[in-house]
């Protein structure tokens, strides 16, 4: 996978067609019609089955919320000054604030590690540009160099889908496209998987890794999440199977061709 050609990058690029971004990874929203292009961007984000409301944390700690369902940006930084001139609007739960984005220049960039939203007011020179970063995937890594990391996600998929316990729900994404989807809860599963990927730790491996596997078990169900540079896999199993699945993955690695 080339740099900047991540899942999200591909999705966003596809939805920003027909005019490809000049730098290949970014698209500026002109002030003339930011709503329409913002809708396009949010449509693209929605295609990844992200939650209805996203929360970006800006470097200064300010939360910026995007109401995906209604295609609006919520939050104090994107609100017009109040009529009294006392500052920005503050009711972040008021969807009507989404109509206040017109004076802003918004820039969305996606790379292999994050989705970055930057914005600045066009009607003032006193407000510096702001930015918010949503980590999306772990950084691209060096060459896989041990048994587990040399596994390919399609192999894991084949193993668990065709050989091991049937899954209640399963989604696999390859090169930015959903290639496998099974079960009524697949969209919800993918949304939850993205949430978990965003909060998952980046382990301090002694050698570079291109594959991360996360297993989460409750008393009656288990999530299997796997991601690499090119593939994402989310599967839901019946039963508490985190330890069994860990053993199966190591076994699969040991027996790989």
């Amino acid at each position: 996978m080339t740099k900047g050609d991540s899942l999200l990058d591909r999705i966003i690029a596809a939805h920003l067609a027909p005019d490809p971004p000049s730098n290949g990874h970014a698209r500026e929203l002109a002030a003339a019609d930011p709503d329409a292009l913002l809708d396009t961007v949010l449509d693209a984000v929605t295609q990844t089955y992200l939650p209805r409301r996203l929360c970006f944390t800006a470097p200064n700690g300010t939360a910026v919320r995007v109401d995906v369902a209604n295609g609006r940006i919520l939050g104090p930084h994107l609100s017009k000054p109040s009529p009294s001139g006392s500052g920005h609007g503050h009711d972040q739960d008021d969807p009507s604030e989404g109509t206040d984005i017109l004076p802003y220049l918004i820039n969305l960039t996606a790379n292999e590690t994050s989705l970055t939203l930057t914005w600045e007011r066009l009607d003032t020179t006193t407000n510096p540009a702001n930015s918010a970063i949503m980590p999306f995937m772990t950084p691209a890594s060096s060459q896989p160099d041990d048994e587990v990391t040399s596994l390919h996600i399609p192999a894991i998929f084949d193993f668990f889908h065709h050989i091991h316990t049937p899954t209640a729900s399963l989604v696999m994404i390859s090169d930015g496209q959903i290639t496998q989807s099974q079960g009524d809860t697949a969209p919800a599963l993918l949304a939850q998987a993205i949430t978990i990927w965003n909060m998952a730790p980046v382990l301090e491996t002694s050698r570079g890794s291109s594959l991360q596997i996360i297993l989460l078990s409750s008393n009656d169900q288990t999530f299997l999440l796997a991601r690499s540079d090119t593939h994402h896999l989310a599967a839901l199993f019946d039963g508490e199977q985190a330890h069994v699945l860990r053993s199966k993955i190591c076994e699969l690695a040991a027996n790989r061709p």
Binding site: A188, V202, S206, L215, L216
Partner: peptide, 29 residues
């Protein structure tokens, strides 16, 4: 974060997560 993750749909998980395993390269948490 991981043990307290909330699930919007009970169709996904109906009870609380009590075990998380993360494997990356030769490291496990």
């Amino acid at each position: 974060r991981l043990l307290n993750v909330t699930f919007p749909s009970t169709a996904l998980l109906s009870s609380t997560i009590h075990t998380v395993i993360v494997i990356e390269g030769d490291v496990l948490q």
